[in-house]
Protein backbone atom coordinates (compact mmCIF):
# COMPACT_ATOMS: atom_id res chain seq x y z
CA UNK A 1 0.00 0.00 0.00
CA UNK A 2 1.57 3.21 -1.05
CA UNK A 3 1.75 6.14 1.23
CA UNK A 4 -1.00 8.36 -0.09
CA UNK A 5 -2.18 11.42 1.70
CA UNK A 6 -5.31 9.51 2.71
CA UNK A 7 -3.33 6.84 4.50
CA UNK A 8 -1.36 9.45 6.35
CA UNK A 9 -4.53 11.21 7.45
CA UNK A 10 -6.02 7.91 8.54
CA UNK A 11 -2.91 7.05 10.54
CA UNK A 12 -2.97 10.43 12.23
CA UNK A 13 -6.61 10.18 13.25
CA UNK A 14 -6.25 6.58 14.34
CA UNK A 15 -3.32 7.48 16.52
CA UNK A 16 -5.18 10.47 17.96
CA UNK A 17 -8.14 8.25 18.75
CA UNK A 18 -6.19 5.43 20.34
CA UNK A 19 -3.69 7.59 22.16
CA UNK A 20 -6.52 9.72 23.53
CA UNK A 21 -8.38 6.60 24.59
CA UNK A 22 -5.34 5.22 26.36
CA UNK A 23 -5.00 8.56 28.09
CA UNK A 24 -8.62 8.36 29.22
CA UNK A 25 -8.19 5.03 30.91
CA UNK A 26 -4.73 5.68 32.33
CA UNK A 27 -4.74 9.35 33.33
CA UNK A 28 -4.28 9.96 37.02
CA UNK A 29 -6.14 13.25 36.99
CA UNK A 30 -9.80 12.79 36.16
CA UNK A 31 -10.12 16.20 34.64
CA UNK A 32 -7.28 15.42 32.30
CA UNK A 33 -8.95 12.16 31.42
CA UNK A 34 -12.08 14.05 30.44
CA UNK A 35 -10.08 16.38 28.21
CA UNK A 36 -8.35 13.41 26.63
CA UNK A 37 -11.77 11.92 25.99
CA UNK A 38 -12.48 15.02 23.92
CA UNK A 39 -9.32 14.37 21.94
CA UNK A 40 -10.22 10.77 21.34
CA UNK A 41 -13.74 11.67 20.24
CA UNK A 42 -12.27 14.21 17.89
CA UNK A 43 -10.16 11.46 16.33
CA UNK A 44 -13.28 9.38 15.79
CA UNK A 45 -14.92 12.36 14.11
CA UNK A 46 -11.93 12.50 11.76
CA UNK A 47 -12.38 8.81 10.93
CA UNK A 48 -16.02 9.54 10.10
CA UNK A 49 -14.93 12.18 7.64
CA UNK A 50 -12.60 9.69 6.02
CA UNK A 51 -15.53 7.29 5.77
CA UNK A 52 -17.55 9.88 3.84
CA UNK A 53 -19.96 10.48 6.69
CA UNK A 54 -19.59 14.22 7.23
CA UNK A 55 -22.92 14.52 8.95
CA UNK A 56 -21.95 11.98 11.56
CA UNK A 57 -18.64 13.75 12.01
CA UNK A 58 -20.49 16.99 12.65
CA UNK A 59 -22.84 15.30 15.07
CA UNK A 60 -19.88 13.71 16.78
CA UNK A 61 -18.24 17.09 17.27
CA UNK A 62 -21.35 18.99 18.26
CA UNK A 63 -23.22 16.44 20.26
CA UNK A 64 -20.62 14.08 21.57
CA UNK A 65 -17.80 16.45 22.23
CA UNK A 66 -20.01 19.44 22.87
CA UNK A 67 -22.64 17.56 24.82
CA UNK A 68 -21.48 14.39 26.47
CA UNK A 69 -17.95 15.46 27.19
CA UNK A 70 -19.15 18.71 28.70
CA UNK A 71 -21.68 16.74 30.71
CA UNK A 72 -18.90 14.53 31.98
CA UNK A 73 -16.77 17.52 32.86
CA UNK A 74 -19.70 18.85 34.83
CA UNK A 75 -19.87 15.50 36.54
CA UNK A 76 -16.20 15.69 37.35
CA UNK A 77 -16.59 19.12 38.84
CA UNK A 78 -19.71 18.23 40.79
CA UNK A 79 -17.81 15.43 42.45
CA UNK A 80 -14.67 17.46 43.08
CA UNK A 81 -12.50 16.00 45.72
CA UNK A 82 -12.38 12.84 43.71
CA UNK A 83 -10.45 14.44 40.85
CA UNK A 84 -6.98 13.65 42.04
CA UNK A 85 -7.12 10.09 43.28
CA UNK A 86 -4.34 8.40 45.14
CA UNK A 87 -5.15 5.17 43.48
CA UNK A 88 -6.33 5.14 39.88
CA UNK A 89 -6.87 1.45 39.33
CA UNK A 90 -8.83 -1.00 41.41
CA UNK A 91 -7.46 -4.26 42.73
CA UNK A 92 -8.41 -6.33 39.72
CA UNK A 93 -6.68 -4.16 37.15
CA UNK A 94 -4.17 -6.82 36.18
CA UNK A 95 -6.88 -9.34 35.38
CA UNK A 96 -8.79 -6.61 33.58
CA UNK A 97 -5.78 -5.91 31.41
CA UNK A 98 -5.53 -9.58 30.52
CA UNK A 99 -9.19 -9.66 29.60
CA UNK A 100 -8.95 -6.52 27.50
CA UNK A 101 -5.97 -7.99 25.72
CA UNK A 102 -7.74 -11.29 25.12
CA UNK A 103 -10.77 -9.40 23.80
CA UNK A 104 -8.56 -7.55 21.38
CA UNK A 105 -6.81 -10.72 20.26
CA UNK A 106 -10.10 -12.48 19.69
CA UNK A 107 -11.44 -9.59 17.68
CA UNK A 108 -8.28 -9.57 15.63
CA UNK A 109 -8.54 -13.31 15.01
CA UNK A 110 -12.09 -12.83 13.84
CA UNK A 111 -11.10 -9.99 11.54
CA UNK A 112 -8.26 -11.98 10.05
CA UNK A 113 -10.43 -15.06 9.66
CA UNK A 114 -13.10 -13.09 7.88
CA UNK A 115 -10.62 -11.18 5.77
CA UNK A 116 -9.16 -14.44 4.53
CA UNK A 117 -12.47 -16.25 4.43
CA UNK A 118 -14.06 -17.66 1.31
CA UNK A 119 -17.49 -16.14 1.28
CA UNK A 120 -17.25 -12.41 1.59
CA UNK A 121 -13.72 -11.22 2.26
CA UNK A 122 -13.41 -7.74 3.61
CA UNK A 123 -13.15 -5.42 0.64
CA UNK A 124 -10.35 -2.97 0.39
CA UNK A 125 -12.42 -0.73 -1.82
CA UNK A 126 -15.97 0.44 -1.13
CA UNK A 127 -18.73 -1.31 -3.06
CA UNK A 128 -19.89 1.98 -4.49
CA UNK A 129 -19.85 5.69 -4.08
CA UNK A 130 -21.86 7.54 -1.52
CA UNK A 131 -24.64 9.54 -3.13
CA UNK A 132 -24.01 13.26 -3.27
CA UNK A 133 -27.15 13.95 -1.30
CA UNK A 134 -26.51 11.31 1.31
CA UNK A 135 -27.28 13.68 4.16
CA UNK A 136 -30.64 14.48 2.61
CA UNK A 137 -31.22 10.75 2.19
CA UNK A 138 -30.33 10.14 5.80
CA UNK A 139 -32.75 12.81 6.90
CA UNK A 140 -35.47 11.35 4.74
CA UNK A 141 -34.76 7.84 5.99
CA UNK A 142 -35.12 8.91 9.59
CA UNK A 143 -38.62 10.27 9.04
CA UNK A 144 -39.75 7.76 6.47
CA UNK A 145 -42.58 5.57 7.82
CA UNK A 146 -41.18 2.69 5.79
CA UNK A 147 -37.76 2.99 7.40
CA UNK A 148 -36.78 4.52 10.69
CA UNK A 149 -39.50 6.83 11.87
CA UNK A 150 -40.65 4.47 14.61
CA UNK A 151 -37.18 3.87 16.09
CA UNK A 152 -36.56 7.56 15.71
CA UNK A 153 -39.59 8.47 17.75
CA UNK A 154 -38.84 5.79 20.29
CA UNK A 155 -35.32 7.13 20.60
CA UNK A 156 -36.65 10.61 21.23
CA UNK A 157 -38.97 9.30 23.92
CA UNK A 158 -36.04 7.44 25.45
CA UNK A 159 -33.98 10.58 25.45
CA UNK A 160 -36.70 12.68 27.00
CA UNK A 161 -37.32 10.01 29.61
CA UNK A 162 -33.63 9.69 30.39
CA UNK A 163 -33.19 13.42 30.81
CA UNK A 164 -36.24 13.83 33.01
CA UNK A 165 -35.09 10.84 35.03
CA UNK A 166 -31.61 12.32 35.32
CA UNK A 167 -32.98 15.60 36.62
CA UNK A 168 -35.14 13.77 39.08
CA UNK A 169 -32.36 11.55 40.36
CA UNK A 170 -29.77 14.27 40.64
CA UNK A 171 -31.82 16.98 42.31
CA UNK A 172 -31.39 17.76 45.98
CA UNK A 173 -33.90 16.18 48.31
CA UNK A 174 -35.88 19.03 49.76
CA UNK A 175 -37.58 16.90 52.35
CA UNK A 176 -34.50 15.72 54.20
Amino acid sequence: MELTIEVVVFAVFAIITLAGALGVVLARNLFRAALLLLVSLFGVAGLFVLLAAPFLAAVQVLLYMGGIAILIIFGVMLTRGMVQARQVMNSQWDLAAVIALVTFVILMIVIVQVAQGEGAPLPSLPRGDVAADSIAQLGAALVDPAQYVLPFEVASVLLAGALIGAVYIAREDEAE
Binding site: V25, L30, S40, M89, N90, Q92, L95, A96, A100
Partner: peptide, 19 residues
Protein backbone atom coordinates in the same frame (compact mmCIF):
# COMPACT_ATOMS: atom_id res chain seq x y z
CA UNK B 1 -11.23 -3.37 18.02
CA UNK B 2 -8.38 -1.58 19.75
CA UNK B 3 -10.65 1.22 20.94
CA UNK B 4 -13.11 -1.33 22.22
CA UNK B 5 -10.45 -3.25 24.10
CA UNK B 6 -9.16 -0.05 25.69
CA UNK B 7 -12.73 0.73 26.74
CA UNK B 8 -13.13 -2.73 28.23
CA UNK B 9 -10.00 -2.25 30.24
CA UNK B 10 -11.19 1.12 31.50
CA UNK B 11 -14.56 -0.22 32.53
CA UNK B 12 -13.03 -3.12 34.39
CA UNK B 13 -10.08 -1.43 35.99
CA UNK B 14 -10.79 2.21 36.81
CA UNK B 15 -11.87 3.01 40.33
CA UNK B 16 -13.65 6.26 39.60
CA UNK B 17 -17.19 5.74 38.36
CA UNK B 18 -17.00 8.73 36.07
CA UNK B 19 -13.96 7.24 34.44
Amino acid sequence: AALFAIGVFGVLARRNAIA
